[in-house]
Each structure stands twice: as structure tokens, then as C-alpha cells.
């Protein structure tokens, strides 16, 4: 099962930092998501050079990953095609559970 089957989210950007929300569609899936979608797993997606912090809001069945240095050079200087990293949430939603 992919996380995309049971959760949704979106990406935001500030400078070189990306934030990625992950939200369960159904409360019954929240414990599985909370246990499996960890800061370490998200950091592994990005590889070396990033720092990931996870904040949880259990009453919303939601978590927020703050990925420092995800946007190399920052939105304004990046040579990436998606300089804002708008699509990055889908790298997390691709995770297998």
C-alpha cells in the first residue's frame, strides 16, 4: 500500500526550507501513519544534507515535516525546474506502508 492511498498533503516553501503536510483521510489510519511515516524515512527520501523535523497534530490526524535545505540554494537561486518544490509532497506519498 502506498501512503497516497490513505493520506493527502501539500508542500510549502520558505527560503531553502520545504514543509510537507501529511493528513489521514480516515482517523482509523492515523496510528499506522504516525508509526510508519517518520522523520527518518522522510530524510532518507532527500538524502544527505537535509534536516527533518516532524510535528504532529493528532486531533487533525495530521503531521507537518519541516525539511531544512530541501530547496538547494533557495527558491530564488535554485536551478531546479520546480524551484518551490511544489511537487515534493508526492515523494512522501509514494512511500510504501
Amino acid at each position: 500500500m502506498k501512503l497516497h492511498d490513505i493520506a493527502h498533503g501539500r508542500t510549502g516553501d520558505k527560503g531553502t526550507t520545504s514543509n510537507i503536510s501529511i493528513i489521514a483521510y480516515h482517523p482509523e489510519d492515523w496510528p499506522k501513519i504516525e508509526a510508519n511515516v517518520t522523520a527518518d524515512r522522510v530524510a532518507a527520501i532527500f538524502g544527505p544534507g537535509v534536516k527533518v523535523t516532524r510535528y504532529t497534530l493528532p486531533h487533525l490526524c495530521a503531521m507537518n515535516f519541516v525539511v531544512e535545505n530541501a530547496l538547494k540554494g533557495g527558491v530564488t537561486r535554485s536551478v531546479a525546474i520546480d524551484a518551490h518544490g511544489k511537487g515534493l509532497v508526492y515523494a512522501v506519498l509514494e512511500l510504501s506502508l
Binding site: G9, T17, S21, T53, A62
Partner: peptide, 16 residues
């Protein structure tokens, strides 16, 4: 509720 939760967390770091 889902559109609002996504936007609440948009460009947010520590929610507190």
C-alpha cells in the same frame, strides 16, 4: 475540513 487542514499547514513550521 481537508482543504482547510492542508492550508493551515501550508508554509508552516512549528504549528505551536
Amino acid at each position: 475540513r481537508a482543504t482547510c487542514i492542508e492550508q493551515l499547514l501550508y508554509e508552516l513550521h512549528d504549528p505551536a
